[in-house]
Design a protein around this nucleic acid. Structure first.
Lengths: 333, 333
DNA sequence: CTGAAAGCGCTAACAT
DNA sequence: ATGTTAGCGCTTTCAG
C-alpha cells in the first residue's frame, strides 16, 4: 500500500504537505494540491487507519458483545447497530460470549487492547462486576437489554420494561379467562418478567403455585423439556407464558407431540417477537420488544458518550407491547 | 492506560528491557524481570494492539461480509467463524452489505484501510468484480457460500454443491410421486439450485414449464407472493421447492391462507435447514447445508492463507443432504 | 506556502 | 544484561 511518504517522494514535497493537501487542513497552493491529489489517485493511496488511530487514540470501532448471535433475538439488533454505526463511520467487532464470563472478560481485554472506542454489552453476556470495573476505568459502555435492576444505575443503559412485559402477558391471559397458568422462565436473567407476571395474578387473587413455574435456558429444547414437566404435573395449565419466543416454539412442539392443540387445549404466549413468530403455525401471540428502537437508542447513547456530548449519560426504558396472533384463545374451562 | 514506557520509568530501566521482559525474548536478569512483571501487574498494563499492529503489519482481525445477519442462515455461520477465529486470537469485524455493491465496496475500503488480515465474503454480498480486484492486490480472501461457477477459480472458495442440492430436492419429490412441481428461486444468485432441480426432471422426462418457476427474494414475504402467483395459475402444483427455507415459510403460509394443507394438498421442500425448520408446523423437509462445516473450512482456509501455510490455496465443495420431515408427502393425484 | 521535527506505543536491530 | 536507536504511517505544531 502506498503511504503518504511515497506520495511526497513522487511529487517532490514534504510529507506534511501531502497530509495537508489530503486532509484539507493547513494551506496548500492549488497547483501542488492538484498534483498531490492526482498522484494519490494514481497510486491508489488509502489512509492507514492503524497509524491514524495510534496518533488520535480513536479507532472508529465499536464492540457488540452478546450471548450468542445464533439466538434469533440478536441478529436484528446486530444489524441495526451496524447500520447506525456505519452512518457514523464506525465498524463493529462482534463477540459471542456464550454467557461464559471468562470468555467475556478475555475478549473484553483484547478489545481494550485494541482501543475499541465503545462497547454495547447485551444482557447476560458478561459479569456485571467486570463491566463495572471497566466502566470505572472510563470506558464508554452502554448496557442493552438488561434487567433494569441488576446493574448499578450509573452505567448508561437502554433496556426494556420487562416487569411490564410480564404484566402484559398475564393480563392478556386473564382477559381470555385463564385461571390456571404456567410460566417457563430463564432465571435469574429473566426474573423481572416473572415478577411482573406474578404481580398481575396476585392482584387478581389467583393461585400461582411453585410447580407452575419451570426453569428454561432460552433454547427450543429447554422449552420442550420444561413443557413436558408441566404436562406431567398434577394439574395441567390452560395457558403457558414463556419468557422468550424460542422457548415458546419448544412449548408448542411439546404440546402438539402430546396430542394436544394450541391454542384450543393450551394457549401459549411468548416474549420477544422474533421475525419467525408471525409465521409459525399457529402464529405466535407474544410480547414484542421494539428491537430496532433498542439498538438505535443504545448505539446513539454510546456514540454521544464517546463524543462526550452529554455529560449526563442518561438511561432509557423501552415499552414492550402485546401482539395478539393465534396461539392464545379463551380458556375452555 | 499504562505504556511500556511508564513501566520503564517506574522501574528505572529502558523501554527495550521492559519489552524483553514482557515478551520473554532477549535476555533479562531474573531480578529485574520480576520487578518489571510486578510493576506491569500493578499498573494494569495491557499491550497496545494498535501500536503493535503498526509495526507488525498484522491486526488479528478478520472481516465477515454477508448480505444481512438478519437472514437466519447467517447467524450460525457467524458464530462458528467467530469461535474458530477466537481460538487463533483473531476477532471479527461484521459487515452487512444488504447486497448493495456500493456499500460493500465502501466497507471493504475501510477494512483495507484498517489492515484487516483477511476476508470471508459470503455469497451475493459483494460484486465479484470488486472482489477480484482486491484479490489481485494480494488480500487474503475466501469466498463462502457462492455458486461455484460465478467466480474466477483462483479465489479460494468454500461452497456448497448447489446443483446437487437442487437434484436432491427434485429426486425426493419424484420419489414421492409428484409430477407437477414448481420452484421459487432467487435468481440469479441461486440459479444452480434451479438447474440441478431441472436436470432431474428432464432426466425423468417431465414437463417443467416456465410458469412453474417463480422469482423470490429470499424473504418470507417474497415466498408468500410467489406462492400466491403459483396458486392463481392454470395448473396447481402438487409440490413446491423453494431455494431457501425462509421462502418455504412464506410458501406454507400462503398455502394455508388459501385454505389448503401442507403436505396433504401441496408438499413444500426448502433449502438451508435453518434452526427453526425442524420446529415449524409442519416440520420442514429441506436440503440441509452443513453450515458449521462451511464456516469452519472457510475460516481455516483463510487463516492458512494469511499464514501462507499453503502456497496453493485450495477450494472445497461441500455436500448438502436431504432431511425429510413432515412438509412433504406422497402426491395425491 | 512549505518543510522539518516530534510523537502516538511498540518491536527489533545493534551498541555498550 | 541493559540501553540506544530507528522505524511502522500518520497528525500536528512550529519554523523558514
Amino acid at each position: 500500500m502506498a503511504t503518504i511518504y511515497d506520495i511526497a517522494k513522487a511529487v517532490g514535497v514534504a510529507k506534511s504537505t501531502v497530509a495537508n493537501a489530503l486532509s484539507g487542513k493547513g494551506t496548500v497552493s492549488e497547483a501542488t494540491r492538484q498534483r498531490i491529489l492526482q498522484c494519490a489517485q494514481e497510486m491508489g493511496y488509502r489512509p492507514n487507519i492503524v497509524a491514524r488511530s495510534l496518533y488520535s487514540h480513536k479507532t472508529f470501532t465499536l464492540a457488540l458483545i452478546l450471548p450468542t448471535i445464533a439466538n434469533p433475538f440478536y441478529p436484528e439488533i446486530a444489524e441495526a447497530v451496524e447500520h447506525i454505526a456505519r452512518e457514523h463511520e464506525y465498524q463493529i467487532l462482534l463477540c459471542n460470549t456464550h454467557r461464559d464470563f471468562v470468555i467475556g472478560k478475555q475478549q473484553m481485554e483484547r478489545m481494550v487492547s485494541r482501543w475499541v472506542d465503545g462497547y454495547i454489552i447485551m444482557g447476560s453476556s458478561m459479569d456485571i462486576a467486570d463491566i463495572t470495573t471497566y466502566f470505572q476505568r472510563k470506558l464508554p459502555i452502554v448496557l442493552c437489554d438488561w434487567q433494569e435492576n441488576e446493574s448499578p444505575l450509573d452505567i448508561p443503559q437502554v433496556s426494556v420494561d420487562f416487569y411490564r412485559a410480564g404484566q402484559l402477558a398475564a393480563q392478556h391471559l386473564l382477559d381470555l379467562g385463564h385461571r390456571n397458568v404456567a410460566v417457563i422462565v430463564d432465571e435469574p436473567q429473566q426474573t423481572l418478567r416473572l415478577e411482573g407476571f406474578r404481580s398481575v395474578l396476585h392482584a387478581a387473587g389467583l393461585q400461582f403455585p411453585q410447580e407452575m413455574i419451570q426453569q428454561g435456558q432460552s433454547t427450543i429444547e429447554s422449552g420442550i423439556v420444561a413443557t413436558q414437566r408441566l404436562l406431567a404435573g398434577p394439574v395441567r395449565p390452560t395457558a403457558i407464558f414463556t419468557t422468550n419466543d424460542w422457548m415458546a416454539l419448544g412449548a408448542i412442539e411439546a404440546i402438539i407431540t402430546e396430542g394436544l392443540q394450541v391454542p384450543q387445549d393450551i394457549s401459549v404466549i411468548g416474549l420477544d417477537d422474533i421475525t419467525a413468530a408471525a409465521h409459525l403455525r399457529p402464529p405466535l401471540t407474544t410480547i414484542a420488544i421494539p428491537k430496532l428502537q433498542l439498538a438505535k437508542e443504545a448505539t446513539c447513547l454510546l456514540l454521544s458518550q464517546i463524543n462526550e456530548e452529554h455529560e449526563t449519560a442518561t438511561s432509557r426504558l423501552i415499552e414492550p407491547y402485546l401482539v395478539i396472533r393465534k396461539s392464545t384463545t379463551f380458556a375452555s374451562n
